[in-house]
């Protein structure tokens, strides 16, 4: 029965050893990479796992995929414990990592897929068809007989994607899967991920491309220093922080009365104002506030007889929310 991937109070610490005299001894406090994480990755949807670098995303994926053993807590895949039933779990999952090699350079794409198909015990007739489908899917049919060492980085990553699908996994763990891919292929991969989820595959996605997460994920877990700090839909997550619109204004020429009016406006609304000059030496203002103050800004400039050379408004994004939730100190700075 497909019950999804469930982690309960998952923990992973890496012992740190230091030389003391002639011996390496464990350091007093081991480093927690994952600290009490409880997640659910249901079948048939894309779940996001977000966090800044070093938050514990890749370690979590390695535990879910049986590569690392948890130091504490439990992980089950369709009710099977990943430590006790590792081999059975491996039949149901696969991992696609961006920027990692994972394929054999001296074999061709077809030979790589054939070999991994054998390791997954895919029946011979099915494997032949599957290899053709996957090569077609990732656009490597014409290059299928070239050794991988002659591939570009993007072609290699496409082969890594095909390798990750060779066993028709019930759960797919994607760690930055579009890293290094050209826009059309990345777009195609996103469509594929959505299609896989629609077909019932449970997908866990980590990505630095937040538009990708907003487009694909129904539910997102946000982690920092190995712990869960927030969860919800991308929209709910963005709503959990004080969101700020940024109004950027460039004046045609310097005008002290306009500058004074904008400073007064910022004080009145308790907004954050920064003032500098652009490349052409024109005064440039950035006003950040939870509300969109563009109307008030334009009114203040016009009332003081100023001339606007440029005006943009940036609405709050998921990225703002992640930064605010995962590292509030950095945002405050």
């Amino acid at each position: 029965m497909s019950t999804g991937i469930v982690t309960t109070d998952l923990r992973k610490t890496f012992p740190v050893r230091r030389w003391q005299g002639w011996r390496r001894r464990p350091a007093a406090a081991p480093v927690p990479a994952v600290d009490g994480l409880s997640l659910r990755i249901p079948p048939g949807q894309v779940t996001g796992l977000l966090g800044l670098n070093g938050a514990g995303k890749t370690t979590t994926i390695r535990i879910l995929s049986t590569l690392l053993r948890p130091s504490g807590g439990t992980v089950s895949v369709d009710g099977l414990d990943v430590v006790e039933h590792a081999r059975e779990v491996r039949r149901r999952i696969n991992v696609i990592s961006g920027g990692e090699r994972m394929v054999y350079d001296r074999l061709t794409a077809r030979e790589n897929l054939w070999y991994f198909g054998q390791l997954y015990d895919v029946p011979r007739a099915r494997l032949r068809v599957r290899i053709g489908e996957l090569l077609d899917l990732v656009g490597l049919t014409e290059a299928a007989r070239l050794p991988v060492e002659r591939y570009s980085r993007g072609m290699r990553q496409r082969l890594v994607i095909a390798r990750g699908l060779i066993n028709d996994p019930a759960y797919l763990l994607l760690d930055e899967p579009t890293l290094g891919l050209d826009a059309p292929i990345a777009h195609q991969l996103r469509a594929l991920i959505a299609q896989l989820a629609a077909d019932g595959v449970g997908v866990l996605l980590t990505s630095h491309y937040l538009a990708e997460v907003e487009q694909l994920c129904r539910h997102v877990y946000l982690i920092a220093r190995g712990s869960l700090v927030a969860q919800g839909s991308p929209a709910q997550l963005a709503g959990q922080t004080v969101r700020r619109h940024t109004v950027r204004l460039v004046l045609a020429e310097a005008d002290p009365s306009v500058t004074a009016a904008l400073r007064a406006l910022a004080v009145r609304h308790d907004a954050e104002l920064t003032v500098d000059v652009d490349d052409e030496g024109r005064p440039r203002f950035a006003l950040r506030h939870p509300e969109d103050l563009v109307g008030a800004v334009v009114t203040a400039v016009v009332q003081q007889g100023g001339a606007v050379a440029g005006l943009t408004v940036t609405p709050p994004t998921l990225e703002d929310a992640i930064l605010a939730l995962a590292d509030p100190a950095a945002v405050a700075r």
């Binding site: 995929s65 049986t66 590569l67 081999r87 059975e88 491996r90 039949r91 999952i93 696969n94 991992v95 990692e100 090699r101 994972m102 394929v103 054999y104 350079d105 991994f116 390791l119 997954y120 015990d121 390798r163 066993n167």
Partner: peptide, 13 residues
């Protein structure tokens, strides 16, 4: 060393 150990160990072989 060549970065394929993980893809080996991910399989049930």
């Amino acid at each position: 060393r060549e970065g394929t150990l993980e893809s080996q160990l991910l399989t049930p072989a």
